[in-house]
Design a protein around this nucleic acid. Structure first.
Length: 377
RNA sequence: GGGGAGGUAGCGAAGUGGCUAAACGCGGCAGACUGUAAAUCUGCUCCCUCAGGGUUCGGCGGUUCGAAACCGUCCCUCCCCA
């Protein structure tokens, strides 16, 4: 059977064990480890596809739940798939709706068959199962699809984490069997199991037995501390095959990304850079700043003199401060461009360091020189 | 000249005898944000030696146990007619 996705490891860092690779997708090749910007509603908020190419965005995410509700997967299919619909010709990945099981917890009910959501748009009763999620993702047509899982909150009891993880495994199997496009759309399984070693191990092993195109680590970045997150990542990764791509879901703080790479993580996505940009918080090589602050009102220096993005090359902090205070969309756009470019460039630098067998040095330099606080951005 | 409306914290605007240092919005000052219900959310925003105290609602005077609110007077804005 033709494979929709192949993964090639190009180097393993002698210092750290971190690796670089190339992900070959139907919409092109991308280098790993990489950061993937999130475009939930078939758009990375405020950014055009041209800007995404310019940023070096490898893979862009879209969201199954949100596109299912609006405009509906049939429209996306009629458009010729999500890439045609949004005019983005690079590789794309759809999250399954599993995160909405977590983020929309107040308005949903989980059962073995699937999850009943109360529509966030009009209150309609909606039912998403592993089969529905895959059908919708088949219609959306992204290069990589995710299994429909339950992203559980932290903390969760052992009993609940176990019950949920076992159900997520059954859902993964059902989703895989429901996939109509196994030769053109890759499907990843998602390791769950909360903060419990044996559950993470068991989940990973079962998923590997099912043979997915890649494996994701889910259930992190849901309120736990950094130490806990890394513990969960470590356990999840222990029993995953080295030759398959590994995707740590929902991680985008600088220190988290660098730690993830140490665990041979190849892909990360996060709304963090775009969300905080819209809220006026920017990642810079000297740490985090909030452009709203009065001290930037007459600061005519670039946001980050070390950055090569369109925003930093052409505009000042004073101008960004002004645009933010005026609530101008162009400010949102410039700041989104910067934050995404900041993380993508960080990953470019990480890849270079890996290839030069000095990733640990690189990581330590970044974490000390950038003066990032506990949050890591 | 005649008639009418009104002056409340940086701005707009509620409040028309005690529950009011005074709603709410804006502005300002901070904080949060990790597979996006997020251009969102939270806190603070008269002064001070701040679990307390001080001084306020155009000015002055009065009524009252008590006034931003009631009365008198003065000042100032805006609208209509001439």
């Amino acid at each position: 059977m033709k494979k929709p996705l192949t993964f090639e490891i190009t180097h393993v860092c002698k210092q750290s064990g971190a690796r670089t690779g190339i992900l070959h997708t139907p919409h092109g090749d991308v280098e790993t480890p990489m950061f993937m910007p999130v475009g939930t509603q078939a758009t990375v908020k405020f950014l055009s596809p041209e800007e995404l190419y310019a940023l070096g965005a490898g893979v862009v995410l879209a969201n199954t739940y949100h596109l299912w509700l609006r405009p509906g997967e049939k429209i996306v299919r009629q458009a010729g798939g999500v890439q045609k619909f949004m005019n983005y010709n690079g590789p794309m990945l759809t999250d399954s709706g599993g995160f909405q099981v977590f983020s929309l917890a107040d308005t949903r009910k989980i059962e073995e068959e699937g999850v009943t959501f109360k529509s966030t748009l009009n209150g309609d009763k909606l039912f998403m199962s592993p089969e529905v999620s895959i059908q919708v993702q088949n219609a959306i047509g992204a290069d990589i699809m995710m299994s429909f899982d339950e992203c559980i909150p932290y903390p969760a009891s052992y009993e609940y984490a176990k019950k949920s993880m076992e159900r997520t495994l059954r859902w993964a199997k059902r989703g895989k069997e429901a996939n109509q496009n196994p030769e053109t759309q890759a499907l990843f399984g998602i390791v769950q199991g909360g903060d419990y070693q044996d559950l993470r191990y068991a989940c990973a092993k079962e998923l590997v037995d099912m043979d997915f195109d890649g494996y994701a680590i889910g259930g992190t970045s849901v309120g736990e501390d950094k130490e806990t997150m890394l513990r969960m990542v470590g356990w999840s990764v222990d029993h995953l095959p080295l030759e398959k791509p590994r995707y740590l879901m929902g991680v985008g703080a600088v220190n988290d990304l660098l730690e993830a790479i140490s665990y041979q993580i190849d892909m990360c996505d996060c709304v963090l850079p775009t969300r905080i940009a819209r809220h006026g918080t920017l990642m810079t090589s000297h740490g985090r700043i909030n452009i709203r602050k009065a001290i930037y009102k007459d600061d005519f220096t670039p946001l980050d003199e070390a950055c090569d993005c369109y925003c930093c090359k052409n505009y000042t902090r004073a101008y960004l401060n002004h645009l933010f205070r005026c609530n101008e969309g162009f400010g949102m756009r410039l700041m989104s461009i910067h934050n995404i470019r900041f993380l993508i460039r960080l990953m470019e630098q990480a890849r270079k360091a890996i290839k030069e067998d000095r990733f640990n040095d690189f990581k330590n330099d970044v974490l000390t020189n950038m003066k990032f606080d506990e949050r890591g951005f």
